[in-house]
Simulated assay, not measured.
Amino acid sequence: MAIAEFFATQFIRREAAHRSGITGNVEWTRHLSEVVADIATANGFHVKTKAVHDEFGRAEYFTLDALCLEGAHPQHGADRIAFPLPAITLEFENRPDRILYDYWKLLCVRSRLRVLVLIVPSDSAEARHIAELTALRAEHASLDGEDLLLGGRNGMANKPDAVWTVHVWRSGGFQGIKLEEGQPWNRPVP
């Protein structure tokens, strides 16, 4: 049985077996989230859902800090939903696991531009993170779109002359680039 059919069968069976007294959207979302969690757990997967909290009291797993959509959204009268441009995560903890997790989330999103903004204490810390991010990105070499890393330093919010480092994924690695004044944000720098 293909994975889609397996999941559909499990979902329909479990949902029908546990449905009772659902009166609103919140209860319905929680009910269906619990069904998904039951299927995942029964099949040896770890699961996070919006409606079911884990042992640390957290719910959602795949939260991104920002998604920007080109043009109008269908909710506001557009006739199609565009893929995000860009998809953005912001990471202010100098922890490799958090930085890799935030970048992994971006790699899961179909976007022409994925942006990871990190604040780290030093150039050497940034270099270590870039090496780890390069290894992760290399595992997903077939992805379309561009990846942009913007690196800042701890305490830069209080320094008007603070400078961001800019790295773009090109030819199998992140390359540092210098931006030209007045260049549109959505065009690659040659």
Results as ranks from 00 to 15, higher is better:
87 A>Q: 05
96 P>G: 05
93 E>H: 14
105 K>I: 05
99 I>Y: 02
98 R>T: 06
86 P>N: 15
86 P>K: 13
100 L>I: 14
84 P>R: 11
76 H>E: 15
90 L>I: 15
90 L>K: 06
94 N>A: 12
109 V>Q: 08
103 Y>P: 00
92 F>W: 08
97 D>A: 12
104 W>G: 01
88 I>Y: 06
111 S>K: 06
91 E>H: 05
84 P>S: 08
89 T>L: 08
96 P>F: 12
82 A>M: 11
84 P>F: 11
98 R>F: 11
104 W>D: 04
94 N>K: 02
90 L>Q: 10
91 E>D: 13
104 W>E: 09
102 D>S: 13
81 I>T: 14
102 D>Q: 06
112 R>Q: 10
76 H>Q: 12
78 A>Q: 12
87 A>W: 01
75 Q>H: 12
99 I>L: 05
90 L>F: 15
106 L>D: 04
104 W>Q: 09
93 E>L: 05
94 N>C: 01
108 C>F: 10
104 W>P: 00
76 H>W: 15
91 E>Y: 11
83 F>Y: 12
111 S>N: 07
76 H>V: 07
91 E>Q: 13
113 L>T: 03
75 Q>C: 05
84 P>G: 02
113 L>A: 02
93 E>Q: 12
92 F>L: 11
96 P>C: 05
103 Y>K: 04
79 D>T: 06
108 C>A: 09
78 A>F: 10
101 Y>A: 14
101 Y>Q: 13
105 K>N: 06
86 P>H: 15
79 D>V: 08
85 L>H: 04
108 C>S: 14
94 N>I: 02
100 L>N: 07
94 N>P: 00
108 C>P: 06
84 P>Q: 09
100 L>G: 01
107 L>G: 07
95 R>S: 07
106 L>W: 00
113 L>G: 00
112 R>T: 08
111 S>V: 06
92 F>G: 06
109 V>N: 05
98 R>H: 07
78 A>K: 05
109 V>C: 06
83 F>R: 08
83 F>I: 13
88 I>R: 07
99 I>V: 11
80 R>A: 15
86 P>G: 12
83 F>T: 15
88 I>K: 03
92 F>R: 15
84 P>K: 10
81 I>S: 04
83 F>N: 09
93 E>M: 00
76 H>R: 11
82 A>T: 14
104 W>V: 01
84 P>M: 13
95 R>F: 02
93 E>D: 02
90 L>E: 12
111 S>Y: 07
99 I>K: 02
112 R>C: 00
85 L>D: 07
81 I>K: 00
104 W>T: 02
84 P>E: 11
79 D>G: 11
84 P>D: 10
103 Y>I: 00
